[in-house]
């Protein structure tokens, strides 16, 4: 069931397929570049002091389901 209690924007719904395709290419190329740079020693492994990455750890409770 969906509650459309605010306007999601029709254009915004349609465009997401295009954005996703572009995002896929961007993510892929960034990843390739990162690996090349890492291999050539141009870049050190990412270490971020303030913000962590997007992953959320699954707790044990979660895995049992």
């Amino acid at each position: 069931m969906h509650f459309l209690y605010f306007d999601p924007g029709l254009g915004a719904m349609i465009i997401q397929a295009i954005i996703a395709a572009v995002a896929g290419v961007v993510l892929f190329s960034k990843n390739v570049m990162y690996k090349i740079k890492l291999f050539l020693g141009l870049q050190k492994e990412d270490k971020d002091d303030v913000f962590d990455d997007i992953e959320i750890k699954d707790s044990d409770v979660e895995n049992k389901n």
Binding site: L10, M13, I14, Q16, A17, I19, A20, A21, A23, G24, V26, L27, I54
Partner: peptide, 16 residues
Amino acid sequence: TASLSKKGQLNIVKSL
């Protein structure tokens, strides 16, 4: 309305 795969949506979220 267009459809979008889950993988596609994850790509948007990750790239943002």
